[in-house]
Design a protein around this nucleic acid. Structure first.
Lengths: 242, 242
DNA sequence: TCAGTTCATATAGCAATGCTATAGGTGATA
DNA sequence: TATCACCTATAGCATTGCTATATGAACTGA
């Protein structure tokens, strides 16, 4: 019952809330529990965070920073698709290590409350996919691919969290991961997929060029020219031949 | 303020809870609101459902029956993969029509509380995938495929719910859906995928035979023979050639 | 040095919540 | 009619999130 280091009460509240949230298996955590563990009285909480939800938002924000740090910390391997795999695995590991926090971040999403985190996570994924696109490894727009992969990533993580820890089979994760990456990557364009083999190398090249352009901030075209050019590229790279 | 038809109080409580849960955007619904709307006093609720959570569980169970009914209601189209697409779309539509209910069902999943629903949903999906496997359209075990597809389906639905209704882009759903089905189906085995082109037609055939056997309850082998035979099949069909 | 100002914490308590001990009413059966 | 199981209501308890108000500490400017 002692988080009374010399830390300021704000930090102690954050840590107490995070700790109680982590160990309470879904049961609701009361402000009295939090303040007691932090060695602080109620008004202090409301002075710093305004609200119980405000405190939890702060906990979530801290957790998200940890998540982002984990996603950025490994050095790029040279193969963007391989980096995306690692990103996926990092995401899953984060969810399994801090399930309660993860559930608050990605399980309780509501339109009016918290899509900012999702947008940030998508941006992180898109950033990596842009490299793949620039290398000609992508079959679809990086943004769409990022949203799609992240959605599957979240779904898999939630499913794994829902399972009793003993029965968790990580093959679900690797299988879904590779399925998504494969479907999104340019590998299939080399002849297979009978239904949409029309995704010719033209499309892949257009996507790659698009990504390269947006990444390099080229100055060789005026902004209005660039806008139109990108629009054409977009039309080409999203065209389906069916 | 009147759900006082001649329905029994138990039904009125269920409907009141469902209605309040549906319109309260994430805010917690109090038992007093529910009992008042149902025209009933508190002990009645606890007599019938024991708990507030018990009542919500009942609401979820009713919602899940509705979900299952929706998943079963369309006639099979002859093409199992096409049926799986419809199943996916049904799932997404259900989530978008009843977001609050869906969030309780799939967003708040915790290992100790509610994996039964997930297991049922998986079984539903697996049932359909067995047909695809029997038709030689599947590249992996039906159970694994079902878990994978359902996970992606849940993730996509949650992401769409998280978005403001105005900006919802269903292309995320169709794209992820087709990506998953493509990756799981046997189509790619016909030559493309350079990394694991080893998924030869032997594997596909083994999976198909396995599904057919389990579906037909063949009596031509004794149960112990069948068990061993299935084990071998399983070994074949899960072998990777990398 | 000291009044003034601001920030941070504590005392005490309110309204709303989930839930229950107890009792009253209703219908079917004997 | 009496009994008995079932269902519902009155009243109230403990806990919840939150706040009105007051006290202390630290810094500012003269």
């Amino acid at each position: 019952m002692s988080l009374d280091g010399q830390l300021p009460p704000k930090m102690r509240l954050l840590r107490a809330a995070a700790e109680l949230l982590a160990k309470s298996a879904g049961a609701s955590v009361s402000t009295r529990q939090i303040t007691q563990l932090a060695g602080v009285t109620a008004p202090t909480l409301y002075h710093h965070f305004g609200d119980k939800e405000g405190l939890f938002d702060a906990v979530v924000a801290a957790g998200f920073e940890e998540y982002v740090a984990g996603e950025r910390d490994f050095a790029p391997s040279g193969n963007p698709l391989e980096d995306i795999r690692r990103m996926w695995d990092n995401h899953v590991q984060f969810g399994l290590k801090q399930p309660e926090l993860y559930l608050v971040m990605f399980g309780n999403i509501r339109p009016e409350s918290r899509p900012a985190i999702v947008a940030d996570a998508e941006a992180l994924m898109e950033e990596m996919l842009n490299k793949a696109a620039a290398a000609g490894q992508l079959n679809v727009q990086p943004r769409e691919a990022a949203r799609s992969i992240l959605a599957a990533n979240v779904g898999v993580t939630l499913m794994l969290i829902a399972e009793p820890a003993a029965e968790r089979n990580l093959e679900l994760s690797t299988m879904t991961r590779d399925a998504m990456i494969f479907a999104v990557s340019a590998a299939q364009a080399e002849g297979a997929a009978p239904e949409d083999s029309g995704k010719s190398s033209v499309v892949v090249a257009a996507i790659a060029l698009n990504a390269a352009l947006q990444a390099s901030h080229s100055d060789q075209l005026s902004s209005s020219e660039l806008k139109l050019f990108l629009e054409w590229l977009h039309r080409i790279s999203t065209s389906t031949s069916s």
